[in-house]
């Protein structure tokens, strides 16, 4: 098994993801510079966080239109897991791999703090190692994290259990107070229709070892690795 971690100009969470995959989860992973374009031989992709291309135009907009994203789309079409974290989530929505858009936080401030998230479904390659409705803790760090989607898209996300994480309080309740960015229905992460592409604003790679304050995020990468072992 080998997982590709895509690097664009301005990506800055690549080495954290590499560390977690190789040293904590214990799977093979490699960083891939976006100019390489060829993802043959990889079983999964992580589009990590950062500020690709300085967030010019819109966060993720430029990275989403680089040729390597065609290879990511191809890999996703094969059913292989694709994970977008923070700026990676923005890239995947801009690339059309995920629905909706991520816009400037309702209160236009860079929010950087721990968040409680409720796991809404375990029926994804990324959440099999969680319990449904479990409350987990991961940090967020973003300025453009307000999830927006048109009504019909939102209804589809709800009906087909495609919302994977919501911002909640410690007890697991969805409230406006704990919504850090004004996301519709407190949405923090969603999957695509075939469930193998996940985007989330929180950073699981920053919560994968107890010494960092939480290791809840580790199970997301472990779930992904298990899925690849089983299917590919």
């Amino acid at each position: 098994m080998k997982i590709a971690i895509i690097q664009f100009g301005g990506t800055n969470c690549d080495m954290d993801v590499l560390h977690v995959l190789k040293e904590v989860v214990g799977v093979d992973a490699e960083t891939i510079w976006y100019k390489e374009e060829d993802l043959t031989g990889f079983d999964g992709v992580v589009v990590p966080g950062g500020f690709s291309y300085g967030d010019y135009l819109r966060a993720g907009a430029i990275a989403a239109r680089t040729p390597i994203m065609d290879s990511v789309k191809k890999l996703a079409a094969e059913g292989k897991p694709v994970l977008g974290i923070c700026n990676g989530f923005q890239v995947l929505t801009e690339a059309g791999l995920l629905n909706g858009a991520l816009t400037t936080n309702e209160y236009p401030k860079f929010r950087c703090h721990w968040s409680y998230l409720r796991v809404e479904t375990t029926d994804t390659p990324f959440t099999s190692k969680f319990r449904k409705e479990e409350v987990v803790r991961m940090p967020i760090a973003h300025m453009e994290g307000q999830f927006y989607a048109e009504e019909a898209t939102l209804a589809d996300l709800d009906e087909n259990e495609r919302v994977v994480f919501r911002y909640v309080d410690e007890a697991g309740k969805v409230t406006d107070e704990v919504n850090p960015n004004g996301s519709l229905e407190n949405i923090a992460g969603i999957v695509n229709g075939s469930r193998n592409v996940l985007g989330l604003m929180p950073h699981p790679e920053r919560a994968s070892e107890a010494v960092l304050g939480s290791d809840d995020g580790r199970r997301l990468f472990e779930s992904m690795a298990d899925y690849i072992t089983e299917k590919f």
Partner: peptide
């Protein structure tokens, strides 16, 4: 349509 605007928002 392809780059400069995001028609969703």
């Amino acid at each position: 349509q392809k780059l400069i605007a995001n028609p969703i928002v």
